[in-house]
């Protein structure tokens, strides 16, 4: 095999893509942690991280170094295997979730024609990671956190799927590249204008699925210390942290592809638009977090079962009807 053949082999491309994705995930984790702290600072009219580097930009790097340097402690009575399985299981599938995301027509790691399904399938594994962590910790707060995570994510998976299905109906494909290509004809071709309700449902459910405030009950620190990751020190905690922020990128990327026209935009090249849109959505997530107080658990489930799921079903039905009529 010549060099170009090796480079063009799909396996090489996937491995290369994985490495790039890991780098992307790491760098983004650092940026997002810094960004979140800056945003909360600004909202509370203080500067946030300030001392390390200009505007504290190196703060999260230093924090990461601190986390890596810390001792890993396994609590007494914990299930050692499950305890350490948790953080690893929460980070690993995220990387797979990046495979089918089209940053631009050319910049897609693996153009799976079932990309949407792949992301939905692999993002569901995170719950299991939380379960393993919560159960393995031998800590009641961790266990309650895990139980909450389970019921929350099982409930919110349904409206999420319903809203995603609307787009799949409309485009007639589960391939993210196809969905993105379908919206690449300018601002007005974005799915957001056709499916605003689906977008809202998707975004709310995604917030809940990523355990972000105001739906961060699994780690509600005022009641559960830190929820499922109460017992984790050092990089165990760091991995959960990284996973949370990476999931934010994943869901925001998916939202961008599904509703905001992916890489579509004038002047700048596609990938920049993509990243810009993703970051705008993440900023909105952070804005939510520092605006809304945490919901109560019954409110959380009521919102899902009484509002989002019926609305999602109606929306899906309406979409199907309209598509049939147009046809």
């Amino acid at each position: 095999m010549t060099m170009t053949e090796i480079l063009n082999h799909p396996l090489t491309q996937i491995v290369l893509g994985m490495v790039l994705i890991l780098a992307f995930v790491g760098v983004n984790g650092l940026i997002l942690v810094w960004m979140e702290r800056k945003v909360v600072g600004f909202i509370q009219r203080r500067p946030g991280p300030y001392e390390v580097g200009p505007q504290g930009i190196l703060q999260s790097l230093v924090d990461g170094v601190k986390l890596i340097a810390k001792q890993l402690v396994t609590p007494r009575g914990a299930d050692r295997f499950l305890f350490w399985l948790g953080p690893m299981l929460s980070v690993t599938p995220v990387v797979v979730c990046f495979l089918p995301i089209p940053f631009s027509p050319a910049l897609t790691t693996m153009d799976v024609n079932l990309g949407l399904l792949l992301i939905l399938a692999f993002s569901g594994i995170n719950v299991l990671a939380l379960c393993a962590a919560g159960w393995g910790s031998n800590n009641k707060y961790a266990l309650i956190g895990a139980a909450r995570a389970v019921s929350q994510s099982v409930a919110y998976e349904i409206p999420l799927l319903l809203s995603v299905l609307c787009i799949a109906f409309q485009t007639g494909s589960l391939s993210l590249s196809a969905i993105a290509a379908d919206q690449s004809r300018g601002l007005l071709s974005w799915n957001l204008w056709v499916q605003p309700l689906a977008f809202v449902i998707f975004f709310i459910s995604a917030t809940a699925e990523t355990n972000r405030a105001p739906f961060d009950l699994p780690e509600a620190e005022s009641e559960l210390t830190a929820g499922f990751h109460t017992e984790y020190s050092g990089m165990g905690f760091g991995l959960f942290f990284l996973a949370e922020y990476t999931y934010m990128i994943v869901v925001c990327s998916v939202a961008t592809v599904l509703f905001l026209g992916a890489y579509d935009g004038p002047f700048l090249p596609g990938p920049w638009w993509f990243v810009l849109k993703v970051y705008a959505l993440i900023l909105a997530l952070m804005w939510f977090r520092w605006t809304f107080p945490r919901v109560r658990f019954d409110q959380l489930l009521n919102l899902c079962w009484k509002w989002l799921i019926p609305l999602g079903l109606v929306n899906l039905l309406a979409t199907a009807l309209v598509l049939k009529l147009v046809e």
């Binding site: 399904l117 939905l120 399938a121 569901g124 299991l128 379960c131 139980a147 994510s153 099982v154 998976e157």
Partner: peptide, 18 residues
């Protein structure tokens, strides 16, 4: 394969955990 992961791993095993 994806349905397997979505349904079994994402839903059934979570139910069992419950």
């Amino acid at each position: 394969a994806f349905m397997q992961i979505l349904i079994y791993v994402g839903a059934v095993s979570v139910l069992i955990f419950f």
